[in-house]
Design a protein around this nucleic acid. Structure first.
Length: 997
RNA sequence: GCCCGGGUGGUGGAAUGGUAGACACGAGGGACUUAAAAUCCCUUGGUCCGCAAGGGCCGUGUGGGUUCAAGUCCCACCCCGGGCACCA
């Protein structure tokens, strides 16, 4: 009987669905295990072979844990709000809900074909009102909360109001400086508070709420009509769509994640996450200790943050960010025009741009001088775009002697450079050493840096000119989006003051609009909706960002259909944290930080009993594509006579110009200008040939032709060719290449030999024509083979290129495994089932050893998530059992269970054929028994000075001395020693013998 | 510049400080077959000596070091990938 993957896989996928094999109940009688994959965004392109990598790994763990007796939650759903669907909607007029539904249907089909054990009854969509009702509800909880720095947790805003009513306020706690330049809220008494207008009260409360509206610097993208988060902007353009982005200050809903900065940092220590992710989060949070220093200027002052208050005596100027609120005030009349022009230019450049141009120093003097708090010296105030508005106070005290950026600025503008440390050569560069001794004049002179820092802070505090301060790089998260396809924010405005929509009004459903574009006057798309108001009060028109729905979805899976609560306390108490979370490392600082933030918040408010969402996190590596390059020469033979600019003769479009495929060495020679005479001759020959061809197509033209877009002196250029047009060896199918794209319709080759496209590894992407579709693999080899092969490719965490050629190995393995049950010699059948080969004979010692070695290795490897080595072990086992001609039930049955997590379909089929009525998923994981692995003898490698020379077998029971004696007595060893006495003999039992001579 | 990974055959990769290259692909040879497919067997890091059996030397990015023994540990450096960044 042949292994028929198609029949088996189709049968079991249907059967599992019919039986509800993967349905999970919240069963408190069993220990739980929660395995979660990161939420996929259902893109229109469907899955490629890289996507399921993590899902296969998590599915193996889920199935393994289930066999080990755990109640396993392994759900899947979709992060189905998002910009691509909206952009597609704008282009085509189709409702994003429709395309999203189509895309998720396609994803589902592809996922089902791989045979995952997801409980689809728990599937969630972030765009489903029954889901986003609770996203909105959480938003309202955030709006209704403030962060109590003393208790170090979020509390209901009503408790803050009670404090104000009773004791008033002394203003904001300033011991921690967050990334945003927040407006200072002064203190007030209880009487004053009670006398405030409603509007004033709400305004003040807004400074404390965890979800709040304020003026904030945002990345405004005019083309999308929306604001983007920092991590959604790449290289000054929107990550999705590639539109330009500019910095703009506008009213914006924000999340006070900065309140959690320290806890987000501290929490990392206890998490079993990869070091690189933890490190990325630490860098993102960016805690630094230092001091704020106030430099008086007239009746005001400039506050700076510095990590090096020890260098205060080296301050020779102050630089403000162009966006700094005080720039206008401190600029003197005679400098106004120049400063304003500079500010205008600088602040409209993206942050990325400003940071990228390290060499270009720019800045302008304001005309003002601040007073040095220690020396009283006049310190000039400059504006420079190397200072960022969003970090610290948006102003720096410049110490060119101790900071390279300040040094460069000082050099450029001829400002004084004061040496601050002993041994510094400030003519060459700043001295940034943190173990130096301070040398600048003043009371810090002679102190080491750390002592000087402490002393400087003491002096600042004594003078009231500053204080020790902790600064975080982390900024509050922009939460509003000027777009349609997201959760509406449940806020309405009464007299311009935001109020929470009552819970009973949730979900606030996304309204229908005529167009998915911003309105003519720049309002978000929701402003197009009719009756977009609550009891006559206008509703908020921005929507939530992508990360809102994905910040709490792991909780919804626990109780996905609950209409009364986001999830019941029983379900939450049972499932608790995610035991294993799998996903790509690109989410290191976006999703994973917000996800932790919301979890901590929900914990603070008593909704959930834990404050970290995922105990263990594993990042799967990327599966890269292997692209194929052809070197294409588009003829511009006009170049011979003329240049592009001066040519005025007939032209043909680039698309119509013949394509010449040149071999790599010719391409390189063209590029280097090292064409041999032969190659040159051949090139001219082809050019003549191509000219003839084109002239036939364009009758009436005489002489040379010019192809616009191809400059004179053109060389060939590399071009990605669809990997479908190329065979395993890289040979291009010229016929199909010609019909692949119109511009290649006329293609000439260098010679008659097959044209080989050079392979190279890069990201797998539709645009690079290197996508391998899992559906194709499955139809040829089956899902079980695909699953095994993806795991076999290499360590899960590492990136590796996909090479379909290697898949034969895992396919052969499955066939060999199958053939252990069906070798076809017609041996007695068991249980009357169609299993001609399987016998009930008692297994031999050798067979038991193979089985238990495999069980041991595979169990350990799954725990370590080392799946490539477990697949290798299965292959070894099958090869050995094949050699032993083992067809025994007592061996094959446990082997089948062990294989089931990796290749569930074939395992299920064989399990059934072995006579079991229940699914193999209900079996018990076979425990390995060390007694079968005990060896009597060990073959010792005998090495001389560490180099292995021969093998000698001794009983394991033999002691060190006995082994040594036996080794030295051996004639071969004696021969090697040539009569000399060894200096030393090292015997490591069951390992090695090393003879030092 | 900083932080995190990683450099091992033609390829993907394996290796608690203890026989480097498991397993698989590819390649070469053979068996079966009219043939092909499928399957099975053998060889396969480099190099040198030998008719052969067999043996020598080199070999895990580079250079040092620790050790009886180093892919693995330490120091310095080079290269590749990813992340962060005029972060005060």
């Amino acid at each position: 009987m042949q292994y028929d993957h198609k029949g088996i896989e189709g049968k079991w996928q249907d059967e599992w669905r019919r039986r509800g094999t993967y349905r999970v109940s919240n069963d408190p009688s069993k220990p739980k295990y929660y395995v979660l994959d990161m939420f996929p965004y259902p893109s229109g392109a469907g899955l490629h072979v890289g996507h399921p990598l993590g899902y296969i790994a998590s599915d193996i763990v889920a199935r393994y844990k289930r066999l080990c007796g755990f109640n396993v939650l392994h759900p899947m759903g979709y992060d189905s709000f998002g910009l691509p669907a909206e952009q597609y909607a704008i282009q085509t007029g189709q409702h994003p809900a429709k395309t999203t539904e189509e895309n998720t249907a396609r994803y589902r089909q592809q996922l089902d074909a791989i045979g995952f054990s997801f409980d689809w009854e728990r599937q969630v969509f972030t765009s489903d009102p029954s889901y986003y009702k609770w996203t909105q509800w959480i938003f309202l909880q955030l709006f209704d909360s403030w962060y109590d720095a003393k208790a170090d947790k979020a509390r209901p805003i009503s408790e803050l109001i009670a404090c104000f009513e009773k004791d008033g306020s002394t203003g904001q706690d300033t011991s921690v400086l967050t990334g945003d330049i927040e407006e200072f809220v002064g203190g007030f008494s209880a009487d004053e508070w009670n006398g405030f207008h409603e509007g004033t009260k709400q305004l003040i409360l807004g400074h404390f709420r965890l979800a709040y509206r304020s003026e904030a610097w945002v990345n405004w993208c005019p083309a999308l009509g929306t604001v983007l988060a920092n991590d959604e902007v790449k290289d000054g353009v929107s990550e999705r769509g590639g539109h330009p982005v500019e910095r703009k200050r506008m009213p914006q809903w924000s999340m006070r994640i900065t309140a959690y900065a320290q806890r987000l940092l501290d929490g990392l220590d206890a998490l079993d996450w990869s070091d690189s992710i933890k490190e990325a989060q630490r860098n993102w949070i960016g805690r630094s200790e230092g001091a704020t220093v106030r430099f008086p200027l007239g009746d005001d002052f400039i506050e700076v943050f510095t990590t090096r208050p020890d260098t205060l005596f080296g301050v020779s100027f102050i630089t403000l960010a162009p966006e700094h609120v005080l720039v206008g005030k401190f600029t003197t009349a005679d400098h106004k025009a120049e400063v304003m022009a500079y500010v205008e230019k600088a602040k409209n450049r993206s942050e990325r741009e400003r940071q990228a141009e390290v060499d270009k120093v720019s800045g302008v003097f304001t005309g003002s001088y601040a007073k040095h708090p220690f020396t009283g010296a006049e310190v000039p105030v400059w504006v420079g775009d190397y200072v960022l508005a969003g970090y610290g106070t948006g102003a720096v005290m410049a110490v060119p002697g101790g900071d390279q950026r300040d040094w460069r600025f000082a050099k450029h503008f001829g400002l004084p450079i004061i040496a601050v440390t002993e041994g510094a050569d400030v003519d060459k560069e700043a001295d940034e050493r943190k173990d130096a001794t301070i040398s600048s004049e003043g009371f810090l002179k002679g102190l080491k840096v750390p002592q000087a820092i402490t002393r400087a802070i003491q002096e600042l505090e004594k003078l009231g000119a500053g204080e020790g301060r902790i600064n975080f790089r982390l900024r509050d998260a922009a939460f509003g989006r000027q777009r349609y396809w997201g959760e509406p924010i449940p806020i309405y405005y009464k007299d311009e003051i935001p109020y929470a929509l009552p819970e009973s009004e949730l979900p606030l459903k996304l309204p229908e609009v005529d167009k998915f574009l911003p309105t003519e006057d720049g309002e978000p798309p929701l402003a197009r909706a009719t009756n977009w108001n609550y009891q006559g009060h206008p509703l908020e028109t921005t929507t939530m960002p992508g990360w809102a729905g994905s910040s709490w979805y792991f909780l919804r899976y626990m109780d996905p259909h609950n209409a009364e609560r986001f999830a019941s306390p029983e379900a939450i108490n049972y499932w608790q944290q995610i035991d294993l979370y799998l996903g790509g490392s690109e989410h290191a600082t976006g999703h994973l930080l917000y996800f932790r933030f919301w979890t901590k918040f929900l914990h603070d408010r008593g909704w959930i009993p834990f404050d970290e969402p995922a105990k263990k996190l594993v990042n799967q590596g990327m599966i890269q594509g292997v692209s194929r390059t052809a070197y294409v020469y588009k003829l511009s033979w006009a170049m011979i006579a003329t240049t592009a600019a001066s040519y005025s003769g007939p032209t043909i479009p680039l698309n119509a110009a013949p394509t010449v495929l040149v071999p790599e060495e010719v391409y390189l020679a063209m590029k280097e200008g090292t064409l041999t005479e032969q190659q040159s001759d051949r090139l001219h020959e082809i050019e003549r040939e191509a000219t003839r061809l084109v002239k036939d197509q364009l009758p009436g033209h005489a002489g040379r032709l010019f192809v616009p877009g191809v400059e004179g002196g053109a060389v060939a250029f590399p071009m990605n060719v669809d990997i479908d047009l190329v065979d395993e060896k890289g040979v291009l199918d010229i016929g199909r290449f010609k019909s692949w794209r119109a511009e290649n319709a006329t293609t000439l080759t260098w010679d008659d030999s097959p044209y080989v496209c050079v392979p190279f590894v890069e990201k797998m992407s539709k645009s690079k024509f290197n996508v391998v579709n899992p559906d194709d693999i499955i139809s040829k080899y089956g899902a079980d083979t695909l699953r095994l092969y993806e795991m076999f490719l290499g360590p899960l965490e590492q990136s590796k290129p996909w090479d379909t050629n290697g898949i034969e190995g895992t396919f052969r393995f499955l066939r060999k495994f199958w053939n252990l049950f069906f070798s076809g010699d017609g041996v007695a059948s068991t249980h009357g089932v169609d299993l001609p080969t399987v016998t009930n004979d008692p297994p031999t010692k050798a067979e038991l050893k193979v089985l238990h070695a495999t069980l041991k290795k595979v169990s350990e490897d799954i725990e370590k998530m080392s799946f490539n080595t477990s697949v290798a072990q299965f292959m070894i086992a099958v090869n050995e059992l094949g050699a032993l001609k083992c067809h025994k039930r007592d061996i094959l049955e446990p082997m089948t269970i062990a294989l089931a997590p990796f290749a569930p379909h074939i395992a299920e089929e064989l399990w059934e054929k072995l006579g079991h009525a229940e699914s193999i998923t209900t079996a018990a994981w076979p425990k390995f028994d060390p007694q079968y692995l005990v060896e009597d003898n060990f073959s010792y490698p005998i090495s001389f000075n560490g180099k292995t020379r021969l093998q000698l077998e001794f009983p394991i029971a033999l002691g060190k001395e006995e082994v040594e004696a036996a080794v030295l007595a051996n004639p071969e060893v004696q021969a090697k020693l040539e009569g000399k006495a060894p200096k030393k003999v090292i015997v490591v039992p069951k390992r090695i013998v090393n003879i030092v001579v």
